[in-house]
Computed example of a mutant assay.
Amino acid sequence: MARGSRPRIEPVPDAPAATVDLGADRALVIGDYHAGIEAGLRYERGVELPSDGPARRQRLLELLRNEHAARLVVLGDLGHRIGSVDGAEREELDSLYKAVVENFGARITVAPGNHDGGLEGLWGDLEGVDILPQAGGLLGDADRGETVGVCHGHTWPAPELLSAEVICMAHEHPTVKLTDSVGGYRTEKAWLRGRLDRDIMAAGVDADPDTITWGDPELVVVPSFNDRSGGTWVNVESEGFLSPFLPEALVDADCYLLDGTRLGAYNSV
């Protein structure tokens, strides 16, 4: 297969979102939307917060509009509850579908995450929605060798994703802990971008590393779109990663803030 130009995943400045051209479509890529999280926090932790659903939706619509995107790609955890979708979460997802598909006219592609167990029953038959398998899928132009693998990252990706030039995942909610000279600290959302180890990835998907179609993909881990969903401090060793293939499969990876600041290797920030 002839290789084309590597698809460019371009982070949107100062936003937890990126753009990518997928053939005829320009797509906006986000992860970890966590619709209905406030109801979940009330049930899980006894935390009472007013819903930020309308503001989340408006922020997303502004990004779609400003980036001239015809498709929204969600890298999993579109909803928050694990299992059935009801109550406030269902209301927010219904409003999101109406706003993005019916009113704005964009398609939605979802690579399901561990919080999306009820999504197929809610959105599976809706016009304008494509729900990928749990292990993700390929988007783009395979004939030209210009493909992007998309998955949530809570499981090993489907073997075909390893043929892509770029793999985008979420799940980690990557953040960095930045400490000042007097011991104070702040946390900020971050991007991770780096290369993957072929042998580790092939073994994880039960494939032969010598015969697997290997695109030498760049891994892009996107920050959480939801501001209330917490995160993994990727530069704190004791935190640990959530994905089954991280950090072992990362040959190297740099960390970037939302404003584009490159902090260098994530494990030495």
Rank of each mutant, 00 (worst) to 15 (best):
A207T: 01
L178W: 12
R195K: 13
P209R: 01
G204A: 00
G231W: 02
Y185P: 09
N235K: 08
D206N: 14
F241D: 02
V222F: 14
D208R: 09
K189D: 06
L178I: 15
S243M: 05
V220W: 15
G194T: 03
G194D: 01
W191A: 04
T211F: 04
S229A: 06
G240I: 03
N235M: 11
D216E: 14
I212Q: 15
V221R: 02
R195G: 10
D216K: 08
G230E: 04
R195Y: 12
G215W: 10
R193D: 03
S229H: 07
S238F: 07
S238Y: 00
M201V: 09
V222R: 15
V234A: 01
G204W: 13
L196C: 10
T187C: 09
V176Q: 05
T175M: 15
E237Q: 15
E218A: 08
R195I: 04
V220E: 01
A207H: 09
G204Q: 09
V221T: 03
S243D: 13
I212F: 15
T187S: 03
S224G: 15
D208S: 15
S181D: 12
E188A: 13
D180K: 06
E237V: 04
T187Q: 02
P209K: 13
N235A: 03
G240D: 02
D197Y: 04
W191R: 05
